[in-house]
Simulated scan of single mutants.
Amino acid sequence: MEKSNQERLKKYLVGNEKSYLKTDISNGKVIMLSGKWGSGKTFFWKNLIATDELKKELSDKNSAYSYVSLYGKSSIEEIENDIFAQIYFSAIGGDNLVTKTFSTFTKYSKRYGNLFSSFDFSKLAEGLENEQKDNKERIALERLKNGAIICFDDFERKSKDIDLNDLFGFITNLTIEFDCKVVIILNDDVFEGEEKKIFSNVKEKSVSKFLKYEPSIKELFETIFNSDEQYRKLDDHKEIILNTIEETEELNARIYIQVLDNLVEWIENKQEIDKNILRCLILVNIYFILYHTIFCKLEKNYSIKEFNDKLKVISNNFDSRTVITSRNQAKFYESFDDYLNNFEKRVYNDNQVSENREFIKDNKKYYKSKFYANKLDISKDVDDKTFQKINNFIETGILI
């Protein structure tokens, strides 16, 4: 059986002692792990690649691992300090920190004498601080030069104060000066405008290996489902959960985690459970995350709570599941865009084309949410009372 994209990447990067990140062949290289937003790149990296086992192997080789999120960083210096601090403290450990501090204290006590009654402790504190800084830099530098792995994440959330050219220059210098391995995790289309041009230019000069992370819905779901012991409470319902997520065609790790967490809470509170209720809860949860919408069930379809739809006379009676063809036959819409095109044709007229077009544009997410709610019939075979209970739970976050 052919391996999935995720399995191939894992084997390539850390599968055995000859894998890319475990040998010197990747020293001094910049590796880019890219994929679509929400596809679980960070989850994959932290849970399947940068495991405790890999970190221990690096430590045993007097090397180190550092994970740096660029979120909240406003300067190259901040990033540099984060890397050095992580590598330093991973080297000395918690207990060793006390020992080294005491050792340094003893050394400075001898240097300044033992007459503590007249000793200027401010000088000791200053000396201790400088000594620790020197030790920190020396230990970090040694470990960096010994095949350390540094991972940079959240590129799309970096501060505007950090120039992209400077950032890549810093990353490149890390690999040149310290011969370490650098992994960059980012979305496919993370930059726009001028930064997009800069990124396109510098990545060709800086990146040695491009890796594409593109899991299937099932693959991403399985990875997350198996990552947390609390999800074992959902084992009996795994198939319906996966099938429902596949109905939505959403590939998003954060959404899967939130859905699974809410399902665990629902079950732990001994709520009524069957496949239709679970399916409804999952769909309501997903579309609330995506569009922040909650639905009311009408006689024939669903409307959005607290959405003042000026076109509701048409939209509430316009079937978002099927379209009547020229041969007077009903067929399913192939996409939301197909549906929207037909909907627009129904609401435009000579006097209100501009006004209606602007209204639809401003409220596109609501119509998109409404389209999927009706297309999938989100509360199918679920009674109104249970549907309302699910809506309340998802909207408020509290199960009453």
Results as ranks from 00 to 15, higher is better:
residue 62 N to H: 09
residue 70 L to H: 04
residue 101 T to P: 03
residue 23 T to Q: 04
residue 378 I to Q: 02
residue 228 D to S: 13
residue 221 F to E: 07
residue 286 I to W: 04
residue 232 R to P: 03
residue 189 D to P: 06
residue 245 I to K: 04
residue 106 T to S: 15
residue 139 I to L: 04
residue 33 L to A: 04
residue 278 L to W: 01
residue 314 I to M: 09
residue 211 L to R: 05
residue 212 K to H: 10
residue 2 E to A: 08
residue 311 L to M: 07
residue 17 E to M: 11
residue 57 E to K: 13
residue 320 S to T: 08
residue 211 L to V: 02
residue 371 F to V: 11
residue 355 E to Y: 11
residue 265 E to V: 05
residue 327 R to D: 15
residue 386 T to M: 14
residue 149 I to Y: 07
residue 41 K to H: 00
residue 165 N to M: 14
residue 256 Y to V: 05
residue 264 V to Q: 05
residue 261 D to T: 10
residue 226 N to F: 12
residue 39 S to W: 02
residue 263 L to V: 03
residue 12 Y to W: 03
residue 296 C to E: 11
residue 356 N to S: 09
residue 390 I to A: 07
residue 274 D to A: 02
residue 55 K to V: 06
residue 74 S to H: 10
residue 369 S to I: 05
residue 240 I to W: 06
residue 350 D to A: 15
residue 209 K to D: 10
residue 168 F to P: 04
residue 386 T to K: 15
residue 38 G to P: 07
residue 19 S to L: 00
residue 210 F to Y: 12
residue 108 Y to P: 07
residue 173 N to Y: 02
residue 233 K to R: 14
residue 188 D to S: 09
residue 207 V to L: 03
residue 79 I to C: 00
residue 338 D to W: 05
residue 208 S to W: 02
residue 301 N to K: 13
residue 258 Q to T: 08
residue 360 I to M: 11
residue 144 L to D: 03
residue 279 R to S: 11
residue 261 D to V: 11
residue 195 E to A: 08
residue 70 L to V: 04
residue 231 Y to P: 06
residue 352 Q to K: 13
residue 269 N to T: 03
residue 223 T to R: 07
residue 172 T to R: 10
residue 161 D to E: 06
residue 214 E to G: 06
residue 179 D to V: 10
residue 117 S to D: 14
residue 372 Y to S: 01
residue 332 F to N: 14
residue 247 E to Q: 12
residue 146 N to E: 13
residue 307 F to C: 11
residue 15 G to M: 05
residue 360 I to A: 10
residue 382 V to F: 03
residue 59 S to F: 06
residue 102 F to P: 05
residue 166 D to H: 11
residue 253 A to P: 06
residue 92 I to G: 09
residue 320 S to M: 09
residue 155 F to T: 02
residue 87 I to N: 12
residue 376 L to W: 14
residue 168 F to R: 09
residue 89 F to K: 12
residue 177 E to K: 15
residue 176 I to R: 05
residue 392 N to D: 12
residue 304 I to P: 06
residue 11 K to T: 08
residue 8 R to K: 15
residue 327 R to F: 13
residue 206 S to A: 12
residue 314 I to R: 03
residue 336 F to V: 05
residue 342 N to G: 15
residue 338 D to H: 13
residue 368 K to G: 13
